[in-house]
Amino acid sequence: MRRLVVWMALGAVALVAVSSAAALTEARQETTLTVYSGREEILVKPIMDRFTKETGIQLKVRYASSTSLATALIEEGKDSPADVFWATESGTLGLVAARGLLKRLPQTTVGKVPSRFSTPSRRWVGTSGRSRVLAYNTQALTPAELPASVWALTNPRWKGKVGLPPTNGSFQAFVGAMLYLNGEDRTRDWLRGLRENGVRFYPNNTTTVQAVGRGEVQLGLVNHYYLYNLLAGDPNLPVRNYWFQAGDPGALVLAAGVGIVSATKNDAAAQRFVDFLLSKWAQRFIARGPGAAEYPLIKGVLPRPGLPTLKEIAGPKYNLGRLAADLPAAVKLLLETGYIK
């Protein structure tokens, strides 16, 4: 009798195993478009769902950091299962494009956004703009006390009070731009100076802004829109964004963007996905959906009220197409200076 029970238990275990495996292969067959998304699931899931609802095209989405997805695309080469690469950070797209792994997009698609948010070779197109900001704790500081430039953060005044996410793609892109604009020596000195000044590291933008909110640090170097997502959950969060002075590298404007993977066999569906991201609905969702606050890039969609316009943010003069070269150099410097361990 006991033996019977044991074998029945083993059988049940095997059954669960086989059926879950079967369910997985089944789920795999009905999907048609594979998207590598560097954008976080919690932010973009509604967009993915809406696309499937509107077009009937099923999506299989691999969510990971844009940098690791770019690495994966390069490792996979021609055998990549991906159709579309949607990155938080255009530099990773440029890097994949430089290896001939992204298709040229039609002018009608690229023409929907200002030219600074794509490249002449049309391998990727921006889907939203984002600005680098200094998030500050409103209980500890007033805007008048804040430094005019990102360079000032190495000042002893800010010792132990600055937090940032060193593995985040946008932070790395900012360092890449700084490298190009201000040279390797000055950038390295600044990075080292910050570390000597007790800068604190966080896993990503969200956790950095939360740390500013808790008062663990008073300042955070982040992208502007994470704050609004957190404010939607907790309107009392004592954090606000501050933009550095005109021309400062700390006020860089970056782009999230999308490209079609050369290995795709689903050209039409991939193109529909790209166009969907540049549709009024998606752009409005990215700009003004619940907790959203990115900059829309197509005409006729306005940014979230209360944000400075992209024209008002006078970031440094920097061509985003350069990031394909500057981003790997930045990652190397960050590894060398111990920001990435």
Binding site: A64, S65, T67, S68, A70, T71, I74, E75, T92, L95, T167, Q172, F201, Y202, P203, L327, P328, V331, L335, I340, K341
Partner: peptide, 25 residues
Amino acid sequence: VSLMGYSTLTTAIYSRYESLLALDS
């Protein structure tokens, strides 16, 4: 160790995996 923000070999391996073109390292 990741959640506690303490760097060890495993977290360093993972951050290189997540990083750009650093798989060999």
